[in-house]
Design a protein around this nucleic acid. Structure first.
Length: 156
DNA sequence: GTTCTGACA
DNA sequence: TGTCAGTA
């Protein structure tokens, strides 16, 4: 059966400089208060992007989000701020592994057998097969390896 | 309406 | 850390 993928879009890097938010949004996203975010920044635990003046609104990037989300999680688990920061730093050393795997794996959406699928990229070194993930009626993830067809319609 | 800094509890 | 004040 020939592969008939219809790639609707390609995911841009999560760390894109376009992926930014202000303190209120970051607070909502992570559950941390704006007071905490400012306090942590004053302690050098987190950092926002460079501001023109002190009165300018803070802008955070994806890295700040991941850091805050991690600290907040450990805080909720009962760690002190100091402990949560320590834990976060320990994991932070290895985040590049998760980051690279995700960046190289999830390449976008595709349509397989008339059903939505996540394009997980090439399955083999020779780049002849591609891995796709789909979910069934019970939301269980199913993986499918399909021969890569260079002639398939693709939107870059 | 949102964010900023500083101050008080 | 929450909250309120007075700004920008």
């Amino acid at each position: 059966m020939a592969f008939s993928g219809e790639h609707s879009f390609r995911m841009k890097a999560l760390e894109s400089e376009l992926f930014q938010f202000r303190i209120g949004e970051l607070a909502t996203m992570t559950g941390a208060s704006t007071r905490q975010l400012r306090y942590w920044e004053s302690k050098g635990i987190i950092s926002s992007l460079i501001r023109e003046g002190e009165q300018e609104a803070r802008v955070y990037n994806y890295k700040a989000y991941v850091t805050v989300a991690s600290i907040k999680q450990f805080l909720d688990e009962g760690y002190t701020l100091q402990g949560a920061v320590k834990k976060t730093k320990e994991y932070q050393k290895n985040w590049h592994v998760l980051h690279e795997v995700i960046r190289h794996s999830v390449q976008g959406m595709a349509v397989l057998n008339n059903a939505p699928a996540v394009d997980l990229g090439f399955f083999d070194e020779d780049k002849t097969q591609r891995l796709y993930a789909q979910i069934d009626e019970n939301n269980k993830v199913k993986y499918t390896v399909q021969p890569w067809d260079d002639d398939s319609t693709r939107i870059e």
